[in-house]
Design a binder for these strands. Structure first.
Length: 558
RNA sequence: GCGCCUGUAGCUCAGGGGAUAGAGCAUCGGACUUCUAAUCCGAGUGUCGCAGGUUCGAUUCCUGCCAGGCGCGCCA
């Protein structure tokens, strides 16, 4: 339990005691006592904590809320950490506390270091987080970049709150698109020898295919000796493998590494699709119609049944995906989280149906739908056409705006918001970029600590200083922000909203910059100086921790 | 037609059953002989898309409508 939670619990207990006392004294008459809510008011003038209990009880007590509040207040235990209590507004009970709990927070941060804020909420539950899973037939796009940032940070968040998380990238290297890609690659290879060689009508026009063909020719100058079918098969395998390597490199440069790159073709090779179909058949959930084999997904709430074996005997995408998810479940994961693009939302119902058909609860699969990214330049939408081979790739984006800025920007918005990403602004206003604001706070603290070292001042620990000297409003605000981390982290993880973390970091950095403007550190008398050194050094710890979760670097100087 | 997402300040977006709805950008003033001015301090702006409903209280929850984006394949 964090310092903040403990503090809240203490006040709630006090309120419970007061309400009981008021009832037994006969001043309050209610059928039942509601759960007591306690919040940190937005407005500092409303105290450190506030409860709306009187407002909630007013009706059943048949008294005006303010009167109820006053009665409760009169029965509240006196003294202790409560410095002042008041009835305010429509009937809130506002608590003003002594600062001791804030100093305790600082001690906790010091003790726990970058583990501060973590908890065991997940109790080691095994979670598989699958994201990006871009087809290995072309460069990744900006939605992939958004998914990579969100997925990676979500994985880090879930681990921080006690889940055992594996991340996975599903490589769709066995479908139609892979075939088209193989034929495109083969044609480009042919064209290196004979420029008039025809290019498939539905082929991928991007220049990257031609570049890949050149590499292939270096590696396999004898490719044309193979019969056509074998040549295509080779191109498919070699080509998708090459694309996977490129994707891996791009993602690594972006700070994202997966625990496993799962090949669809391995499912095929292992007969996993047939096995999944057999299982569904045994359960009586498939039937033949019009020469195709159908999965009765409507039995589990889907709006229509789905073909799993086409009339030509080949499988559909969903067949492989059912086999893949079955594989995940058999590996012992208790929770499957997938991050998909908005074009896949219609796909959720059938996959949830499949999960249930396989014998698992519908809630085992959780799908997060990320909304689109509209890329802008100078405020104008960037026209992108895959056909014309014109698009901004994830690699372009990362090169242009940088890993830290790109990740921070994507993690700044809530996942379900459609977002505009103006590359011109991201680059031109780089000095105004929010990511620098946070990084600068870290660098500033580092600089102060560095100079303290040069002056021969050791960075003290909490036990060596008088923390009660930290009295300035900006200092107390900073301590409150530090106290808030555990709750913020947990809700960001449980709500799957990494952007809460970004805001937290911005708020913390803002409070620090403000403090920095009001308060000096190294120039102060030793006791105050030392207390402030402890303060900023622990702020730095938390900044590092949060930036680490965001996958953004924490520079010592800028 | 059905489904998903969005609609909050000039712009990009947070927030959220409660007290006077926020931040950044942009605009306008101030602050570097003192720990990094990539910073700070101060200033203005809102029918929270519209209409009903639930509630002591709705911008937040529910329903309907309007607007924008995206999906509804024996494609992946």
């Amino acid at each position: 339990m964090s310092v903040l939670q403990r503090q809240k619990q203490e006040l709630i207990s006090a309120l419970e005691t007061a309400v009981s006392a008021a009832i037994s004294s006969g001043k309050l008459q209610v059928e039942s006592v509601p759960e007591i809510g306690l919040e940190i008011p937005r407005d500092k003038g409303h105290g450190d904590f506030a409860s709306n209990i009187a407002l909630v009880m007013a009706r059943s007590a048949r008294k005006p809320p303010r009167e109820v509040a006053q009665i409760i207040l009169e029965h509240l235990p006196q003294g202790g950490i409560i410095r002042e209590v008041e009835v305010a507004g429509p009937g809130f009970i506002n608590f003003f506390l002594s600062n001791e709990w804030l100093y305790d927070t600082l001690r906790t941060v010091e003790m726990q270091g970058e583990a501060y804020g973590n908890c065991l909420h997940g109790a080691g539950e095994k979670v598989l987080l699958e994201f990006v899973s871009a087809n290995p037939v072309g460069p990744m796009n900006v939605v992939n970049a958004r998914a990579a940032a969100v997925g990676d940070t979500l994985a880090r968040l879930l681990r921080a709150v006690g889940y055992q998380v594996d991340t996975e990238f599903y490589v769709n290297d066995a479908g139609n698109q892979a075939d088209v890609f193989a034929r495109s690659l083969e044609a480009r290879y042919q064209q290196l020898i004979n420029p008039d060689h025809p290019f498939p009508e539905d082929g991928y026009p991007g220049a990257y295919v031609t570049e890949l063909a050149r590499v292939l020719r270096e590696e396999r100058p004898d490719l044309l000796d193979l019969p056509y079918d074998e040549r295509i098969a080779f191109c498919k395998r070699w080509g998708t493998d090459s694309m996977v390597e490129l994707q891996k490199a791009d993602l690594k440069a972006y700070g994202v590494e997966f625990d496993l790159w799962f090949r669809e073709r391995d499912l095929h090779a292992a007969g996993a699709l047939e096995a999944a179909i057999d299982l569904l058949r045994q359960k009586g959930l498939v039937y033949e119609q019009e020469g195709a084999l159908w999965f009765r997904s409507t039995a589990f709430g889907d709006d229509k049944d789905r073909v799993i074996v086409k009339s030509d005997g080949t499988y559909t995408y969903v067949t492989a995906d059912i086999a893949y998810h079955y594989n995940k479940l058999e590996r012992g994961f208790e929770k499957l989280i997938n991050i998909w693009g908005p074009d896949h939302h219609g796909y959720i119902a059938r996959m949830k149906a499949a999960i249930q058909a396989l014998g698992y609860s519908e809630d085992t699969l959780e799908v997060l739908i990320l909304q689109y990214v509209a890329l802008l330049r100078d405020g104008q939408p960037v026209k992108m056409s895959k056909r014309a081979g014109e698009f901004i790739t994830m690699q372009d984006l990362v090169e242009e705006v940088g890993k830290d800025a790109a990740r921070f920007f994507f993690l700044h918005r809530s996942p379900e918001s459609h977002l505009d990403f103006d590359m011109t602004l991201a680059v031109e206003q780089s000095s105004e970029n929010p990511v620098f604001y946070v990084q600068y706070a870290h660098a500033r603290i580092s600089s102060v600590l560095r100079q303290a070292g040069e002056m021969g001042i050791a960075i003290p620990t909490c036990s060596e200083v008088d923390l009660s000297l930290l009295q300035h409003e900006s200092e107390l605000d900073l301590l409150k922000q530090l106290a808030a981390l555990p709750e913020e982290l947990l809700s960001a993880a449980l709500l799957r909203e990494p952007h809460r973390l970004t805001r937290y970091a911005l708020d913390l950095a803002g409070l620090f910059h403000s403090f920095y403007g009001y308060c000096h550190i190294l120039g102060e008398e030793a006791p105050l100086r030392d207390a402030r050194l402890v303060l900023v050094s622990n702020i730095r710890t938390v900044l590092r921790k949060v930036l680490g979760l965001l996958g953004v670097s924490a520079p010592e100087q800028m």
